[in-house]
Simulated assay, not measured.
Amino acid sequence: MAARFWHYAALAIALAFLLFGLVRLGVGALLTLQSMGMVETAWLAEPVAEVTAFLERKNAVAIFAMSPTAYFLVIMAMGALLLAGAGRYLLQRGGLGFLAAYLGIHGLLFVNFLEINPKLWLWGATIAGWLVLWQARRLRRPSAKPAFA
């Protein structure tokens, strides 16, 4: 009974990570294109301006200063790691390492900019989700069916 709970919880979390990764990758790509001047849309101008202002303030104390384009490329990379990790997890081919790399990069962004902000709850939630996936994987028998079956 408990193993079944962990299985379904892990399935829901892996699907959420897959969707979150797709959003991060897509939005990161659009913001990267906007910041490079390759796309000009009004609805992307405000987020790019906000990130640019944030980086101008925080690059003075940052361990590694970033341009808006570099920051958005990191966001895209984080989305790719979420997609790869969740996809591999659902196919029972691992994936926890990719998700751990995502968590590491997310945490390093807080450290790099010496910034604690409301997005910290998101990082905590993804850590909790990773722990659920790890526990479900630990409880799964080697002969278990793929997570999506």
Rank of each mutant, 00 (worst) to 15 (best):
P47C: 07
L131K: 14
F148C: 05
P118L: 01
G107V: 04
G129P: 08
L131T: 10
Q92W: 13
P47V: 03
L25K: 00
G104K: 06
V48G: 02
F110S: 07
V48W: 00
G37M: 05
T41N: 08
H106C: 01
L15T: 09
A101F: 02
F5H: 14
L73S: 03
A149N: 13
R4I: 07
L30V: 07
L103E: 04
R140I: 01
E115P: 01
S67H: 00
T32R: 13
L11M: 10
G21L: 00
L25D: 00
L55S: 02
L103T: 06
F54V: 05
F20N: 13
M38Q: 13
S143P: 01
W134F: 12
A136S: 11
L31S: 04
G87K: 04
R4V: 12
I63N: 08
V39R: 06
G129T: 08
V27Q: 11
A3R: 14
R140D: 14
L108M: 12
R57W: 08
A3I: 13
V23T: 04
A128S: 06
F5N: 12
F64Y: 14
A70C: 05
G26R: 02
L131R: 15
I75C: 01
W134S: 11
Y71K: 00
E46W: 08
W43S: 14
A14M: 05
L22H: 04
V27G: 03
A10N: 11
P146N: 12
R4K: 14
L109A: 07
W134Q: 12
L31P: 02
L120I: 08
T69R: 00
A101W: 02
G87L: 02
A49R: 14
T126C: 10
G124L: 15
F72S: 01
G79N: 03
A101C: 11
T32I: 02
F148S: 10
W134N: 07
I105F: 03
P146H: 10
R57N: 14
F98G: 02
L18M: 12
M1R: 15
T126A: 08
M78N: 08
P118D: 06
L96F: 11
R24K: 09
F98A: 15
I75R: 07
A2P: 11
L139K: 12
F20G: 12
L55V: 05
R24S: 09
V23W: 12
A53N: 05
M66S: 02
W123C: 02
G28V: 02
L91E: 10
A45Q: 15
W6Q: 10
F20P: 01
N59L: 05
K119E: 09
L31C: 05
G124V: 11
A14T: 03
F17P: 08
E46L: 13
F98N: 06
L122P: 03
L73Y: 01
A80R: 03
A10V: 09
A2Y: 11
A100Q: 09
